[in-house]
Design a protein around this nucleic acid. Structure first.
Lengths: 206, 206
DNA sequence: CTCTGTGAAATTTTTCACAGCG
DNA sequence: CGCTGTGAAAAATTTCACAGAG
């Protein structure tokens, strides 16, 4: 909407785009302390700012990616990160054959440099894109080095100490969820603008 | 647990591994119609079978990946899929320079062959790994060709007709969620076995 | 008039707690 | 005994519905 120079938006419009109830939009935004204008709606620019602030996107979060296989490369090249304030500051791989290779602006570094590099560049978020077998060890090393948020793409369950945030993206799980719906496809479908298992995630707290 | 030849498991044990309450495990499993044995627990093999059946993993779901950039390659090479019954049967890209390239066992095919290929190989699930700009068009073509489930990795919102399942994995969103927790990090952390925003997804219905 | 902000109601989810089976 | 299955209670989320601000 910002791109389209829309200046204000109603809860009804936001609700339609998000596929939810308008009351929910208003209730949720009310928790942000965001004030819309009665009779008008929400100022788009203001709303974007307030949400960015609440999500911590006004801070700068240096990210390190560990594991430069296909997925690691995909993540390293992914433009969406920079656009939302995440700065990739290090690419790390255990394979000596990859160390020294250039990926975009960055050079792949060895896993032995992890400690130094995390400290020097104030890495806040570690992304695990290693094979499953290496995931726990890499996680431990990242945490030991001071990283407090981990995003795990490896198909392995890893555990972290209390106080460290952990999220896991499991590609196969996503397919399983689709498979579940395919399996239970209703004879007559509901919904207006298409189906919607696209709803975002739930999450617990540390 | 199957790998470790564990024969039975209690709701308490499952709950600990999943990071939830034991009563929830029992309640949830009760909806499956799965019967545990009182005083003993659940038979691992039986539970795995019943869950697989419920999720539709006993069926064979042919998958087509569209867009063979880094992410597409990562997905094509990702072993977790086959392990859970998803068979990748086609790789499609619009770039003539990529068509004919081999990735694993498959050869990249042109987007113009999409219709034929979806029909011939009974593709049930389409994975979008294209740039954002191409996502909606590719989705439309997949749907027109008969694909009824879409997993969208492109950083773009796509819409599908009613009756088609859609999920979106947004890599930047995952980072934003971590950033939110980092921002709101409690001075004293809770939880025993580490934090847990690793909780799975919510989902709506078609 | 329109559209927000929000108490209150409705609904859904989660947890408790315990009867009862093996 | 130990652990499931499940009503009932508790908690959380979502929706309703409307007073009131602009």
């Amino acid at each position: 909407m910002t791109d389209q120079a829309v200046s204000t938006v109603s809860s009804e419009q936001l609700a339609e785009r998000a596929g939810v109830n308008a009351a929910k939009v208003r209730k949720d935004l009310s928790y942000l302390g965001t004030y819309g204008t009665r009779g008008v709606g929400y100022a788009v620019a203001e709303l974007v700012d307030e949400i960015a602030r609440e999500l911590g996107l006004t801070h700068d979060w240096p990210v390190a990616i560990v594991g430069l296989g296909n997925l690691g490369h995909a993540l390293a090249n992914y433009h969406g990160f920079g656009a939302r304030g995440f700065r990739i500051v290090a690419l790390v791989d255990a394979d000596a054959g990859k160390v020294g290779n250039q990926v975009g602006d960055l050079t792949i570094e060895g896993i032995d440099d992890l400690d130094v590099l995390v400290a020097d560049r104030h890495v806040a978020i570690g992304v695990i894109a290693t094979p499953a077998g290496a995931a726990q060890e890499v996680t431990d090393r990242l945490v030991a080095a001071g990283v407090s948020s981990i995003l795990n793409f490896a198909p392995a369950v890893v555990t972290v100490p209390s106080g460290v945030s952990l999220r896991k993206v499991d590609l196969a799980t996503e397919l399983q969820i689709l498979s579940f719906y395919q399996q239970h496809r209703r004879p007559s479908a509901l919904g207006t603008e298409g189906s919607d298992h696209a709803a975002p995630d739930r999450a617990g707290v540390t």
